[in-house]
Nucleic acid binder design. Structure first.
Lengths: 237, 237
DNA sequence: CCAAATAACTGGTCAGACCATACTATACGA
DNA sequence: TCGTATAGTATGGTCTGACCAGTTATTTGG
């Protein structure tokens, strides 16, 4: 009568951790480039021993979900294998102007994000986007721009479109472009006028999405990314 | 003069163990079903700590080389057991309906391809597209559909948009989706009416691009992919 | 000679310690 | 006041030792 019984559940602690983090990454709660707390922090947050934690992290790294950098930290990776960007990295290093082409594709996808988000978003999605938007403005009224804030904002929109692949494609591209773009972008965004323009464009996108006006959302996203791309070109020349 | 030096090799102990055992398995020194010595034996045989050993074993298990059975031992696995490691593929395997989301992103990009190709294409690009289009029609007038022909046609358009990343993304997505989609698509495309519809839609896209009408090209591409996606949904339900 | 009790062994987990390096903040000097 | 040097902290990598809960092999008692 052994068929009556199922094998005793002896799921390893590390497997539970793997499951938990996997889900967080797949759902987009943990976005690529995001840095996880250190191992010592994690073990007390999760209430497990360091061996189990390390076993889980090791597995996640082997599976490609995270990247563990010695003495640097634990980072979430983009799981978008469909874009296979790595081989193209050298291409950009040889000719920086090629990032413009990459940003074109980004624009393709993000315009679709904005359009879809306008009709697919929930109240919670909208709040998340608004929160990211507000982070650009400090209580004093001063504007702060950072790559991470920008990325979070755009990802929130992709997430609001409720298409997992769009989220990962977006993050994948931005994460890939980070090393080329971040210094440039944060450089000229220091200018108050540029910062103001960006925030203004972001707000326009948000407003269109909130109004569930897909066409306008797409158009505002296009305006924003065309402008950014234009600034990029100017900087490269 | 730092270029004189290369970064210090800090290969992890566990990685060395992985390499060693990998080689033994690949060379056939360790055959499937073979039971390895216990962890305590292995650490003194290899002269490493248990953490490192376990880290290595864990990785080997994730990679599919060995199987660790609690309180039973460590066993070499047969390598032919198909192991799916790609996180995104796992996602789709859990829920096939997610391919629809993937195709949505494909549509985003390919609409942009069509639009851009309309204005950016050269005479040579156009000829290539036309050639791929004609391959659907046999000299006898009969229609043949194959995944490869379809892929070639769509890639030719992406290439005509003169954006390397777009080409790469398109191929990446289609190649990734192939194993899920190909059987389905080639299945219903056997129907003469479906084949005819597809070829007709392809021709419409081509015509719009040739006429350098970007808006029309985008619209025809959208019609085509929406239709395909619709058929996909119908098949999955 | 067989069955029951026991010892040895298994992988899983936790804890604590140490290492080498990277980052940060503080203090000191110009 | 600014910039640099230094000390302190945080990081992942490794090792050791211990305990647990089952499994397997061995020994012991009938």
């Amino acid at each position: 009568m052994e068929s009556l019984f199922q094998e005793v559940q002896v799921e390893k602690v590390s497997d539970k951790i793997v499951d938990q983090l996997c889900r967080l990454i797949q759902e987009g709660k943990l976005t690529p480039g995001h840095r996880l707390p250190g191992e010592r922090k994690l073990i007390e947050m999760l209430g497990v021993g360091r061996s189990s934690l390390r076993e889980a992290l090791n597995k996640l790294e082997t599976l490609g979900y995270i990247e563990i950098r010695k003495r640097k930290g634990i980072f979430v990776r983009s799981i978008d294998s469909t874009l296979q960007l790595d081989p193209l990295k050298k291409l950009i290093q040889e000719d920086q102007h090629k990032v413009v082409q990459l940003y074109e594709v980004r624009s393709d996808i993000e315009q679709a994000s904005a359009f879809a988000a306008a009709s697919a978003h929930t109240a919670a999605d909208l709040e998340t986007i608004r929160n990211h938007l507000n982070r650009f403005t400090e209580p004093s009224g001063a504007l702060t721009f950072s790559w991470q804030h920008d990325l979070d904002f755009h990802c929130a929109i992709a997430r609001a479109s409720h298409n997992l692949f769009r989220v990962h494609a977006t993050i994948g591209i931005l994460d890939f472009a980070r090393e080329f773009i971040q210094p440039i972008l944060e450089g000229f965004a220091l200018s108050a006028t540029h910062s103001a323009t960006i925030v203004e464009q972001h707000r326009a996108i948000y407003t269109a999405i909130a109004a569930r006006d897909g066409a306008a959302a797409r158009e505002e996203m296009k305006i924003h990314l065309d402008w950014t791309n234009q600034k990029l070109v100017e900087h490269l020349n």
